[in-house]
């Protein structure tokens, strides 16, 4: 097993929400105690529904948000305090790729200027060297030389996402967090960008955290997948294992919700109830109100993430769920 590049220990994030007219506030726990290891060179997938805390987790892994509790270790060392020199240096090594490339790019700058900007900011290259590096970056992500002087609105969605990726690669990072990087792209373009990310992992050994709600893409690109529900990891396993044999009742419903041609509406697990609301977290296991196997114990006790062979699972009744699956 390769060494961990990044480790999260007991990560917690809370946000204050204005609750009443009189200014009373309440806190919402977006992330509620997460332990996670990202190994050198792997792609770790994070899946879960909106409000499960996956984007918040991604931002904390990058040190863009300071956790309310717990810590993140990068290459064994704790994350430096924000806005310090050490923090800025680390920024060059860790990059974020967003869902909406148009929002991530400056509309008034040519794409060449945007891709080259980090080189200048981090003092990596200047003049002819910078121009050379720019050309290499553009070629790396599949942009043509003649597109260098274009503006973002002159490019297609897929090309814009390539610009964002090229800019993220400019500083030669070791770690990327991709937050729904292909969700806004059309199917035929999605595959181009997924393959590009894959090449970066295989050829340059980039380590990635890939956050997405598209389970098919996650299964394809990720080595390991962690499933989040209301700020906690409920199951984590190698990609093949997780999708072939999901164990947690929530993971099972999630995998079953992927529409398969020819199957029709039969045999799908339809979860009752609403997506989770972090402001009104149920007691005990957060999933128990929607779970078909929950009993009184599940409403009282929060299940811990426990090892079970190659997977980790947080469920008080995994055997009941497994029995109906067979």
């Amino acid at each position: 097993m390769t060494a961990p590049l990044l480790q999260a220990r007991g990560l917690v994030q809370e946000y204050a929400t204005a609750r009443s007219f009189f200014g009373k506030t309440s806190t919402v726990r977006a992330v509620d105690g997460i332990d996670l290891t990202v190994r050198q060179g792997e792609i770790l997938g994070i899946v879960g529904e909106s409000g499960s805390g996956k984007s918040t987790l991604g931002r904390m892994l990058l040190g863009l948000e300071t956790p309310a509790g717990g810590e993140v270790l990068y290459q064994g060392a704790p994350m430096p305090a924000p806005r310090t020199d050490a923090w800025r240096k680390l920024r060059a090594q860790m990059q974020l790729i967003f869902q909406d490339p148009l929002a991530a790019l400056d509309r008034r700058m040519t794409i060449a200027a945007q891709i080259a900007e980090p080189l200048e900011i981090h003092g990596i290259a200047k003049g002819a060297e910078a121009a050379e590096r720019l050309a290499a970056l553009m070629a790396r992500v599949g942009l043509r030389r003649d597109q260098a002087d274009r503006y973002p609105h002159e490019l297609s969605g897929g090309q814009r996402q390539r610009v964002v990726i090229a800019r993220a690669l400019a500083t030669n990072p070791g770690f990327l967090v991709c937050d729904e990087p292909v969700s806004a792209l059309d199917v035929s373009i999605q595959a181009q960008v997924v393959n590009l990310l894959r090449d970066l992992q295989e050829q340059e050994g980039l380590t990635m955290v890939f956050i997405s709600h598209d389970l098919k893409v996650v299964r394809n690109i990720c080595d390991r997948v962690a499933v989040m529900y209301l700020g906690r990891v409920v199951e984590e396993a190698p990609s093949d294992l997780l999708f072939a044999d999901p164990r947690h009742p929530y993971t099972r419903a999630l995998v079953s919700s992927i529409p398969k041609p020819g199957q029709g509406l039969h045999g799908r697990i339809i979860l009752q109830g609403e997506p989770p609301n972090p402001a009104a977290r149920p007691a005990g296991c957060a999933f128990h109100p929607r779970c078909a196997f929950a009993d009184r114990g599940c409403a009282a006790r929060v299940p811990e993430l426990q090892h079970d062979g190659r997977r980790q699972i947080a469920c008080l009744k995994p055997d009941a769920a497994a029995a109906t699956a067979a």
């Binding site: 199917v187 035929s188 595959a191 389970l215 098919k216 690109i221 990609s239 093949d240 999708f243």
Partner: peptide
Amino acid sequence: AIPDIDADRGRLVPIH
């Protein structure tokens, strides 16, 4: 271009 949930996790085949 769509990943098959039951097939190998091979490279996707995009439309150029």
